[in-house]
Simulated assay, not measured.
Amino acid sequence: MKKWMLLMVAALMLVLAACSEKEESTENKEAQTVTYESETGPVEVPANPQRVVVLSSYAGDLIKLGVNIVGVDAWSAGNPNFTEELKDAEVVTNEDLEKIIELEPDLIIGLNNIENADKLKEIAPTVLFTYGGVDYLQQHIEVGKAVNKEKEATAWVEDFKARAQGIGEKIKAEIGEEATITVAENYDKQIYLFGDNWGRGTEILYQEMGLKMPQQVIDVALEPGYFAISQEVLGDYVGDYLLLNLITEGQDTTFTDSTWYNEIDAVKNGQVFEANGATFYFNDAFSLDYQLDFFENAFLGTN
C-alpha cells in the first residue's frame, strides 16, 4: 500500500476513534443523570446520588431507600429513631449556604417555600416538594423518583399498605368496629388535636386502618389538620382510646398527674398509649414502619 494511502487510513481511524470516544462520553454522562419531573419542572438529578442534603421532613424516606445523607434539618436530627443513620450528617438550614457548599452535595431536597432556593440550585440539583401536595404514600414514591429509586419506593408502599390494613383488621376485631381514638400532642401548655393527615400516626390509624375519630375531633381538626385546645378540656375530645404523643424536651408534662387528666374515661380504663412525640412527628417511610410496630404492640401486644 502506498504511503499516502496508509496515512489516509491512519487519519480515518483516528477520526473514528475520536467520534467513538465522544459518543461514549455522552452516553456515560447521560447514564450518570436522570430527569425528575418535579412540580416546578424537570430537574437533572444524579442517577445514583451519594451525598444528599435534606432540608425538610423527608430524611426517613431517604434512609429507608438507603441513600446517604450528609446534611439534615434539625427536626430530623432530633428524631431518636434516626440517631444511628444520621450520626455523620451535619445539621443545616437553607440559610447555611457556605456550610452546605462544604458538604459537596450532589442533590438537595427540601420544601418549596424555603428561602434561598435559587442559591441552593447553584450548589447542586435541587428538588422541592409542597407539603401535602400528594398523599403521604405517594410522597415516598416521589422522593424515590428523585433519587432514581421509584421501583424500591413503590414496592415498599404496596407492602406497607398490606401490612397496615391487615393489622388494622385485627385491631378492629379486638376493640370493636365503632371504637374511637383521639390523637393528641402537648406543646407550650396547650394540647393539639390532629386530623387524619398531619403525621403523629394519624395516617395509619385513620386512613390505612380505618379506625374512627370522635365526632368532636372531626368537627375541629379534620379539615385544618390540627386544632389547639386548653389542656383542661382535653377530656371533651377523647374517644374510647387516646394516643398521646408526649413532647418532653423543654415541655411541661406534669398535666398527666393532674386530677382532671386522670378522670378522663380512656385514662381510667387504661386505654391511653403514650408515645415519644419526637418519633411520631413525621409520616416518612422509616417513621411509618416504626409507628405501625408501635400500634401493633399497643393494641394487640404482639411484640
Rank of each mutant, 00 (worst) to 15 (best):
Ile171Asn: 07
Trp260Phe: 14
Ser258Lys: 09
Ile204Pro: 02
Gln251Tyr: 11
Gly168Leu: 09
Tyr261Gly: 10
Val233Ser: 13
Ala228Gly: 04
Asp252Leu: 06
Ile247Leu: 15
Ile247Asn: 15
Val183Ser: 06
Arg200Ala: 03
Asn197Val: 05
Tyr192Met: 12
Ala184Phe: 04
Gln216Val: 14
Gln251Val: 07
Val233Ala: 00
Gln207Met: 08
Arg200Tyr: 04
Gly210Phe: 09
Glu232Thr: 07
Val217Trp: 09
Thr254Phe: 00
Tyr206Pro: 03
Met209Asn: 01
Gly201Cys: 13
Leu193Cys: 01
Thr256Ser: 00
Gly199Ser: 09
Gln207Glu: 15
Ile247Gln: 14
Glu177Phe: 06
Lys170Thr: 07
Glu178Gly: 09
Lys189Asn: 15
Met209Trp: 00
Ala173Ile: 00
Asn262Phe: 10
Ala179Asp: 05
Lys189His: 14
Lys212Ile: 05
Pro214Ala: 03
Gly239Cys: 07
Tyr261Leu: 10
Glu178Pro: 05
Asp240Tyr: 03
Leu244Trp: 01
Tyr237Glu: 04
Glu223Pro: 02
Gly166Gln: 02
Thr182Lys: 07
Phe194Asp: 07
Ile181Glu: 04
Asp219Met: 06
Gln251Thr: 08
Leu222Tyr: 12
Ile167Asn: 01
Ala221Asp: 06
Leu246Met: 15
Phe227Ser: 11
Leu243Pro: 09
Gly176Lys: 09
Ile181Asp: 01
Tyr226Gln: 12
Val183Glu: 07
